[in-house]
Write a protein that binds this DNA or RNA. Structure first.
Lengths: 218, 218
DNA sequence: ATAGTCTATATTGTCGACAAAAGTAAATGT
DNA sequence: ACATTTACTTTTGTCGACAATATAGACTAT
């Protein structure tokens, strides 16, 4: 998949902090003290500042001038807003993928779907989650639109992952989602851009509604 | 409209640099030397670095480790990619606006349209451009989706403006675009979310095709 | 007792200097 | 003459210190 190679110290610090935030080790709403983090990571405040700046542009932290940065706090409304952004973007990605994906990329996607199916049968939850991520990622890359790819991979996906972890969403809905995946791939293989977009949007919409339901019931 | 108040020196430097880049005073592809800029603006390199970092997250400059930052170079392909992102996003904005815009906001939008119409009659090109920006901005705000608003206003709009200035696109297409605007507002006033989205997407698609044509013909 | 002010403290913003990496040009060897 | 190495210069990355702003607590006045 994607290789993010950290060459500078600020890179590593940024990646480490992002992991800590997304995984929940640094709890939402908590303050990111520059001095504190610089001693913890044993680096200068400058690299911490740079890392925090980048976290801000990923929408993982919010910063106020002369006050400081806090990890974004989670709300159902925020998650809904995020999915309202993700839905049309991935819809367009599927539309473009139907036109621009190479035949062998589509074949690989089918292979992935089959391995996904077998992991459903054996109830391997972890791989189901990873398989879902991989599925969306491949279609996104298949769109060949760099703006779209960068926007979703570098920003939105991480924020959504954070929400999922925080809200304890261990995404079930696998069996029905699998059928939706299948239909999307079929539309792409048929080079039906219009249908691919509609199906992808529906797929993400359903996921959103499912998340809303599970969240509201608890 | 939107007020971006710069409290810190880095804020001001960032805004100044962004203006210079979008307006073309700093030409695309040119290098942003930290030392050079720090002497030019009479500030320390730290604030220049922060400003450049923010420009990078706006997608206005590209940075490579240990090498430096360059203003993004323009290409027709890049502009197309950008419109392929913008189209579904603003489509969703129109869809949401049809549900969430307040009645008086819709009334204001109609007032704006009428003033737009009169400026078309008198051929005031500058106000036509500004009017178009204002139109899209109001619908975006009407969506009430903070993620969507921030994404378009803080990032995408600036990049598109840079492309327009650079490629010398003094957006004509006003009269037909006006009718499209009218139809979109009508759909929103009717609270027809589905139609509002379709019309907005078409509107942006047409704009893109128009830009492609004018660019290819020259 | 409460509101407001003032002082002390902690945190962020800015700066200049040093370290490390990349780029450049001269020098050497074949 | 060309390629490679080596010294040198330039630019970015990192650091610690100082300045400016915000927060917290003590103090005063009504």
């Amino acid at each position: 998949m994607l290789v993010e190679q950290a060459v500078t110290i600020a890179d590593k610090t940024f990646l480490q902090l992002r992991t800590d935030i997304v995984s929940g080790d640094i709890v939402p709403g908590s303050k990111l003290s520059e001095t504190e983090l610089s001693t913890k990571f044993a680096v200068s405040r400058a690299v911490i500042r740079e890392a925090i700046n980048r976290l801000e542009s990923c929408r993982l932290v919010e910063r106020k001038s002369n006050i400081g940065a806090r990890v974004v706090s989670l709300s159902l409304e925020g998650l809904i807003e995020l999915f309202q952004v993700r839905e049309p973007l991935e819809g367009m990605a599927a539309r473009l993928a139907a036109t621009h994906m190479l035949d062998n990329e589509i074949a690989d996607l089918n292979t992935l779907l089959h391995s996904h199916l077998s992991s459903i049968r054996t109830n391997e939850n972890y791989f189901q989650q990873a398989g879902d991520v991989d599925f969306h990622y491949r279609i996104l890359v298949g769109s060949k639109n760099q703006q779209l790819i960068s926007l979703l991979v570098n920003d939105i996906y991480h924020v959504i992952r954070m929400y999922r972890v925080q809200l304890g969403m261990t995404g079930p809905r696998v069996t029905t989602a699998f059928e939706e995946h299948q239909q999307i791939v079929k539309a792409i293989a048929n080079r039906d851009a219009e249908l691919a977009e509609i199906l992808m949007r529906r797929h993400i919409l359903y996921t959103r509604l499912h998340l809303e339901n599970t969240f509201n019931q608890t």
